[in-house]
Computed example of a mutant assay.
Amino acid sequence: MAGIKLEGLRLQAYEHPSDAAALNALTHTAGFDTLITKLNAWGIERFLRVQLTGSYLKVTQDSFPDLYQIYLVMKERLDVPIEVDLYIASGGEINAFTVGVERPLIVLTTTAVEQLAPYEMAFVIAHELGHIKSRHVLYYQIAEFLPLIAGVVGSMTFGIGELLSAGMQMALLNWKRMSEFTADRAGLLGCQDAEVAWRTMMKLAGLPPKYFASVNTEDFLKQARDFQALDADTISKIAKWLNSVGAMHPWTVARAQQLLQWIESGQYEEVLKHPQGPAYGAAQAMKFCNVCGNQLKGTEAYCPRCRNAVTGYGPPPAPPLPPGMPPPFVR
């Protein structure tokens, strides 16, 4: 599986701006810090790990060598220095998800394993590794298992259900949808083939297996461009918002449109050339918070994203750790 190893790849090099904006809104939602503290104290991550590892098949070099090799290549290519467990779960749809902050694990459905070609599986695994590298997992697993947390945990005496207000749930789901745009960029940086990304998204959108061999990605890309054109109409914008506000994932065509826009802007090729971020001169010309890496205008006394005092500038540092998250990338 030929490709470029993106040594030193940084989140800031490929993070989608809507992801960063939605995360900023989420972390400033009233009661969110309390929710994180309570979930950490209760041990929601241990609960999910026991549930998942007790039910699903673990992928190893001996049991599923082809899948394991794809994982190893994507892990190296995206420069993810921590070990990640891989599992297969019974499922009728092409899907994958990630949980676990201290010990991340990726779950692939049986249908994904059966219906995705090796390079398409590489895109999916790199997408999930992107969530891990971008430190999405703590918030991602709260959003992914929100019904379980609200229904089961909230019915107990931990006071968690009361914290999950409608505003917080909306902020969580909105961020999760935006985080998929960042993870899709990681998926493309992993497989390094846009055609593979389009085929994978078409399968995720429901392409029947009998059409896999004759798939026409040009029509799909035209649909993605047509979808972008809908934004010119205010009524269409409102309709798209109403249809997506409660969804866990952005529409697949919208994801394709966002990824296509990133490619056509030239930023994808720039990341392949400079995985650590802008060239040194450009980085020096830009100003970033020296705590969270948020880009600044240069006049702020406090960063609007992390609320820390701005004491210096320079190339974007690694993003901050969310509450309760241990340093994940220890070499």
Rank of each mutant, 00 (worst) to 15 (best):
M1P: 09
A2W: 00
L6A: 09
L6C: 05
L9R: 02
R10W: 04
Q12V: 04
S18T: 02
A21L: 10
A22S: 15
T27S: 00
T27H: 01
A30C: 05
G31H: 07
D33W: 07
D33P: 06
D33V: 12
T34C: 03
T34V: 13
I36A: 07
L39T: 05
A41H: 12
R49T: 01
L52E: 14
L52G: 02
L52R: 03
T53M: 11
Y56Q: 09
Q61S: 15
Q61P: 03
D62F: 12
F64I: 06
D66R: 12
M74R: 00
D79W: 09
D79E: 12
P81R: 08
Y87G: 01
I88A: 06
A89I: 02
S90P: 05
E93Y: 09
N95I: 04
N95M: 10
F97P: 02
V99F: 10
V99G: 05
L105Y: 14
I106L: 04
V107P: 03
L108V: 02
T109C: 01
A112I: 03
Q115T: 04
Y119T: 13
M121V: 07
A122L: 10
F123Q: 05
V124C: 01
H127Q: 07
E128S: 02
H131I: 01
I132K: 05
S134M: 00
R135N: 07
R135V: 01
L138K: 15
Y139S: 00
Y140G: 01
Q141V: 00
E144P: 02
P147D: 12
P147Q: 14
M156D: 00
F158S: 12
E162H: 06
E162D: 11
L163V: 00
S165Y: 12
Q169V: 15
M170V: 03
L173N: 13
S179H: 07
S179I: 12
T182F: 05
D184P: 13
R185A: 09
L188G: 09
G190T: 06
Q192S: 08
D193F: 07
W198M: 11
M202Q: 13
L204I: 03
A205M: 09
A205C: 05
G206C: 01
P209G: 11
Y211H: 11
Y211K: 10
F212I: 00
F212S: 05
D219R: 14
D219S: 15
F220T: 03
A229M: 13
L230Y: 00
D231Q: 10
D233V: 12
K237R: 15
W241L: 15
W241P: 00
L242C: 07
L242N: 13
V245A: 06
G246H: 12
A247Y: 06
P250Y: 11
R255S: 03
L260P: 08
L260E: 13
G266H: 12
G266Q: 12
Q267S: 14
Q276A: 13
Q284D: 07
F288V: 08
V291Y: 13
N294S: 10
Q295L: 12
L296G: 08
E300M: 13
C306S: 02
A309Q: 15
A309D: 11
V310Y: 04
G312I: 04
P317I: 14
P320C: 00
L321M: 10
P322S: 05
P322E: 09
P322F: 09
P323A: 08
P323R: 14
M325T: 13
M325G: 04
M325V: 10
M325L: 01
P327A: 11
V330M: 11
R331Y: 15
